[in-house]
């Protein structure tokens, strides 16, 4: 089943054409590796999916419905999550609040006063998510800025997975991690796939890409250069697509 369909998407910043007519479809429960040189347009393409950037041309369809003109919050609530390279965490707010950022559950205080953020519920559910991920976080009420890089990564992942996403985009999720933590993220991607959640993985580490992805897509200078199942391509092919030697 097709989950996401991108048709003819173009985007420029000033006089720089970052995306030039990209077509891409993502199947439900698939893991797609997205590779390309710096400035190839990978992150920009992903941000047109999450709604951070609007497109100049083309359409984005998710679950059969057009989402091209929807704001990021609306797309998130339909099941598109992204883990950003810089993690996009609010460093002075605590772990639990970061996981629920933008989606805080509310209740009536004493059954009367509306709009009360249910902090107790946020803490409980955030703790459950952290435990489920097997992440080691000193305290759910610690400001995120206190945590190590790997711990912050766990918080960003927990935020993306708490609200039952259908598609999770990961932008260089392993770049700042130690070897053991990288293995953990790759296991997590396999687990997501088992649960029927589609993943798009951006990474410079081709080993990781070849380990978990069903399919490898290469961008170069804003164009989609190659789109092959893992079994029908090789690391050499991919590298030559990336650098444009093929």
């Amino acid at each position: 089943m097709t989950l996401l369909e991108i048709e003819g998407v173009s985007k420029s910043f000033g006089s720089v054409d970052v995306l030039r007519g990209i077509d891409l479809t993502i199947e439900a429960g698939s893991v797609t590796g997205l590779v390309g040189d710096n400035g190839a347009g990978k992150s920009t393409l992903m941000k047109t999916i999450t709604g951070i950037y609007s497109v100049d041309d083309g359409t984005v369809t998710f679950n059969g419905e057009p989402i091209t003109d929807l704001p990021p919050g609306e797309r998130r609530s339909r099941g598109i999550e992204m883990i950003y390279q810089d993690l996009a965490l609010a460093k002075q707010q605590d772990v639990a609040n970061n996981i629920f950022l933008g989606r805080e559950p509310v209740k009536r205080l004493w059954g009367l006063i509306p709009g009360y953020v249910d902090k107790a519920r946020i803490d409980t559910e955030a703790q459950q998510m952290i435990d489920r991920l097997g992440a080691k976080i000193p305290s759910i009420n610690r400001p995120v800025g206190y945590l190590s890089g790997g711990q912050q990564q766990s918080v960003a992942i927990a935020r993306a997975l708490t609200f039952e996403p259908k598609l999770v985009i990961m932008d260089e999720p392993t770049a700042a991690l130690a070897v053991r933590e990288v293995e953990h993220v790759l296991d997590l991607i396999r687990q997501l796939q088992k649960d029927g959640i589609a993943v798009i993985l951006i990474s410079h580490r081709l080993n990781d890409i070849f380990e978990v992805c069903d399919r490898i897509v290469v961008l170069r200078q804003g164009r989609l250069i190659a789109d092959d199942p893992r079994g029908e391509t090789s690391m050499n092919d991919v590298v030559s697509h990336i650098v444009g030697a093929a």
Binding site: I52, A88, L89, Q92, Q93
Partner: peptide, 23 residues
């Protein structure tokens, strides 16, 4: 204690993050 307040602090903390989470 409200979402308005939480979002106020989040925007001040990291505007890009706030935007990314749909605020």
């Amino acid at each position: 204690h409200t979402r308005f307040g939480a979002h106020t602090l989040a925007i001040g903390d990291n505007e890009a993050a706030a935007r990314a989470t749909g605020i």
